[in-house]
């Protein structure tokens, strides 16, 4: 397995010493994110997120299947992550590296286990027919902080996604094409966002948000906190690494909440802008057969 070349000793020392003086190589503040950009595709459910030089594409798709036998009332929801060799020569196809396993576990815990998507609403006929929602995450370019970017992309893709409208009449299930009925959004309950802190130094006393790949390579530990804008923690993962004072972890969580709220309002704004762009002539409201049920996400 090819290994990523480690930064040289000089580079490491340079980055660390600068961080000691609260200076980052790209001139950001310690608690500042790189510019976050989001573009939606022409189709529903495609989100392309760039965070500095990190770029992640997420695509949501739906298909009709049979629900799992042990959960007849639930739909199926999966997140598939792929780190291809396009990103870095250290990644190989069909052989998940540790990074990939950790990212997919984190996304799973953040989005799926926290109940962001109401899987019961995906069930059409109990035990027989349900929607299977799948999100494919492709990392196109890796310059650190993949987790935050990937999580944002997944949430954006799912909130942008529309599944075909269906109806049940007399035991007959009809799935409408987009031409017949405007597709409907998923039943979305809350939007969690990941915020990753990286710790530097022997005592882990320097905490930095949104580390670049270079910074990640010299960091001595990291902690990913997932929150939604209501102040609910969905997941915390500090998987080993340098020991950090419990009090500073609490501070990190509070700052993370501010960042998560910030990301949440950004996403809301981009989603409304996109909705306006698609809604040419204001016809969508008339075409939609759906009742407004969830006013505030």
């Amino acid at each position: 397995m090819p290994r990523e070349a480690e930064p040289s000793l000089n580079e490491k020392q340079f980055v660390l010493q600068a961080l000691q003086d609260s200076i980052r190589l790209d001139g950001r503040e310690l608690e500042q994110y790189r510019p976050l950009e989001l573009t939606f595709g022409d189709q529903y459910g495609v989100a392309d997120v760039t965070l500095g030089k990190t770029r992640v594409l997420a695509k949501a798709s739906a298909e009709l299947t049979v629900p799992y036998a042990d959960r007849p009332l639930d739909g199926i929801f999966n997140i598939a992550t792929e780190l291809s060799p396009m990103t870095s020569p250290a990644f190989e196809v069909n052989r998940p590296t540790e990074t990939e396993v950790l990212i997919s576990r984190l996304l799973e815990k953040t989005v799926r286990r926290s109940g962001a998507l109401d899987t019961e609403s995906l069930c059409l006929v109990a035990g027989q027919k349900c929607w299977s929602i799948r999100v494919d995450v492709h990392v196109l370019s890796h310059d650190g902080n993949l987790i935050d970017a990937a999580c944002f992309a997944v949430v954006a893709a799912l909130r942008h996604f529309r599944k075909p409208d269906t109806s049940m009449e007399g035991g007959v299930l009809t799935v409408y094409t987009p031409a017949e009925r405007e597709p409907v959004p998923l039943s979305w309950l809350h939007s969690p966002f990941c915020v990753t802190w990286s710790f530097f130094g022997e005592d882990g006393d320097i905490a930095v948000l949104d580390a670049t790949w270079m910074e990640e390579q010299v960091s001595s530990g990291s902690c990913t906190i997932s929150l939604n804008k209501h102040g609910e923690i969905c997941q915390i993962a500090k998987l080993g690494g340098v020991p950090v004072e419990a009090v500073s972890l609490l501070q990190c969580t509070n700052v993370a909440l501010i960042k998560a709220k910030d990301m949440s309002s950004k996403l809301d704004r981009w989603l409304t802008e996109d909705a306006k762009r698609r809604d040419k002539g204001g016809l969508l409201a008339e075409l939609s057969a759906e009742n407004d049920r969830v006013p505030d996400i």
Binding site: R113, G231, A237, P243, L249
Partner: peptide, 18 residues
């Protein structure tokens, strides 16, 4: 010490509870 090496939370909880 109070220094945390690993912290893993896998459930949804209010930030004030942390």
């Amino acid at each position: 010490s109070d220094r945390v090496v690993a912290l893993v939370c896998e459930s949804r909880v209010q930030i004030s509870r942390l």
